[in-house]
Amino acid sequence: MTPNLTYIVVVGVLFAAGVTLLLERSLTRVLMGVILLGNGANLLLLTGGRAGGPPIVGTTDGAEMSDPLPQAMVLTAIVITLGMTAFLLALSYRSWHLNGHDEVQDDVEDRRIMDLADRDEGPGTDDADQPDSDDQLDGDGRPDPDSRRPSAASLAAAAGGRGREA
């Protein structure tokens, strides 16, 4: 089978546009990138089989029939893209509802670990970081686990401030 130049160009352009959108931070854009990528991938799959008449026995001769196998794969892929689209749309709405925008933020915990790495420190999850029952007790006699951890709010602020740069 010889390559079909038209397909190859379309697939390339759909992937290029899709990836460009995918790398954005706006979830709506990411979603559109996913849709374009999906279309590109579906066409890429189709290039694996020959074109021809509809693969319906009785309508088309066996020899002129288009390859049905990639079509079956693509068909389910199309519907899954629909489910994916719905999910991402719900996600962007939710994000907008909570934060007033639909941008993907950096992960706060990851940011915390990167700060530790910058300071050349260990994870501090070992006992060394935890207060002992002997030296620090709160009211009901249990050690206070949160006393040495930085507050979540300050971390979120730090992450939010740096999140946009990347």
């Binding site: 915990e109 990851d110 670990i113 990167m114 530790l116 790495a117």
Partner: peptide, 8 residues
């Protein structure tokens, strides 16, 4: 982790 999990 700090080098690979950039959180972005």
């Amino acid at each position: 982790t700090g080098a690979t999990q950039r959180g972005s």
